[in-house]
């Protein structure tokens, strides 16, 4: 566990922040959208649990083509 503490979190923090922003953008889009490909609740889980990939998958496949 001591090795774990050696990891400089200040370097990794930006990744987490960016992921959170991405997730927030995805959720904003999802909530404002009336129609999605597949159930709304499924996309909530995909975005929240799927990390980076979840949000990307939502942006590419979740939004019904306008």
């Amino acid at each position: 566990m001591s090795e774990f503490a050696n990891i400089p979190w200040n370097l990794i923090l930006p990744i987490l922040v960016l992921q959170l922003i991405l997730m927030a953008v995805a959720l904003t889009d999802l909530i404002r959208r009336k129609q999605t490909n597949g159930p709304f609740i499924m996309w909530i889980f995909i975005i929240l649990l799927g990390n980076l990939i979840g949000s990307i998958i939502y942006f590419i496949f979740g939004r019904r083509h306008e």
Binding site: E3, P14, I15, L18, V25, A26, D29, R63
Partner: peptide
Amino acid sequence: NFKLYWIPIVFVIFGIIEPVTNHFLPEI
């Protein structure tokens, strides 16, 4: 449609992950 935002964010995340994982992979 937020492409202006999510695409740069994704590219930047990959841009950060690459050096960080390569640096810390041996320790991990």
